[in-house]
């Protein structure tokens, strides 16, 4: 039976299967004729990729920092109380991206390497009296039973204090989420603070340079001048922010001081505030303004024409 619409002779019958050479490239990266990506989607994808990238970079930084701080301090006879400026500066810079948990990890790593947990201390960690898992410790409020691990973290209580002083300053927020980068300064508990002028650009320039004895005094003078300028700038800044002298500064992120200044109380009975003395001619003043009608010292003659002056023309 002939079909009602026979296909034309010159055209081959059209296959209902998909085009073969299209499927031949199985692992092609992009099928041909693909729509160009929506720029908005592309931007979102880029944004997330860069966030992830940033996070990876920060994590790598932390890892590097832990690796270097594990072998700290650089000289074997370094003292935790008076660290060398170079070490202290490096330490301060390295812990900035840390979270407290990262800092704990650093302490753990140092303990495994048999060092005191404080990165600027060169002594080995303290050994507990026995190898028992739990230990008795005498404290102010009787005997306590603690893990041996807790005892074998620091070389001394002093180091523990110094290390924890750094830990409480670390930000809980992961470094890749911190707004505007992360450049808060970490303070160290050191006894030779005058040697650590890291906040001053002046010091940075000269750090590491060997200095002759004669230059020493010059440098000290420069340092003092720089510190004075620094303090002046800070006071100006505080005034600009509206801080009052003696108050806790608004920009202050220092720890709360532990010494309390008590104000001396006077026994005089409180005085009711008095109004500023009013002269008799200003009795009609309304919040300091004396309406014209009540003014005695001015002539009334031109007042009558006042309304006229403001008229146009």
């Amino acid at each position: 039976m002939p079909t009602p619409y026979p296909p034309p002779r010159d055209m081959p019958p059209k296959s209902i299967l998909k085009n073969k050479n299209k499927n031949a490239t199985v692992s092609a990266n992009a099928p041909p004729g693909r729509k160009p990506a929506n720029p908005r989607h592309l931007a979102v994808a880029r944004h997330h990729a860069s966030v992830l990238e940033d996070r990876k970079r920060v994590e790598g930084e932390v890892l590097e920092a832990v690796m270097t701080l594990m072998d700290f301090p650089t000289s074997p006879d370094a003292d935790a109380k008076r660290p060398s400026p170079a070490d202290a500066h490096l330490f301060q810079k390295a812990v900035i991206p840390f979270q407290p948990a990262d800092y704990d990890a650093l302490i753990e790593e140092r303990n495994i390497a048999d060092k005191c947990g404080y990165a600027l201390c060169s002594r080995p960690k303290k050994k507990a009296r026995s190898t028992a898992r739990k230990q008795f410790v005498d404290t102010d409020h009787g005997v306590e039973i603690v893990d041996r691990k807790v005892l074998e973290v620091w070389c001394s209580d002093d180091c523990a204090k110094r290390a924890l002083y750094v830990k409480v300053q670390l930000s809980e927020e992961p470094a890749w989420l911190r707004q505007g980068g992360y450049h808060d300064k970490i303070e160290l508990l050191v006894e030779n603070e005058e040697e650590h002028g890291q906040a001053l650009p002046l010091r940075l320039k000269q750090e590491g340079a060997t200095k002759a004895d004669g230059e020493d005094e010059d440098e000290d003078a420069d340092m003092n001048a720089a510190w004075a300028a620094h303090n002046d700038a800070l006071t100006d800044l505080a005034l600009e922010r509206g801080d009052k002298p003696g108050q806790l500064s608004k920009a202050n992120n220092d720890l709360i001081q532990d010494h309390i200044t008590e104000r001396a109380s006077s026994n005089a009975p409180p005085q009711a505030p008095s109004l500023p003395a009013q002269t008799s001619d200003h009795t009609m003043a309304i919040e300091g303004h004396v309406p014209r009608i009540n003014r005695k010292d001015e002539g009334d003659d031109d007042d009558a024409q006042d309304w006229d002056k403001h008229l146009p023309g």
Partner: peptide, 9 residues
């Protein structure tokens, strides 16, 4: 054989 294995090991 170490009890704790860290970055050092």
């Amino acid at each position: 054989a170490d009890e704790n294995v860290g970055m050092k090991q």
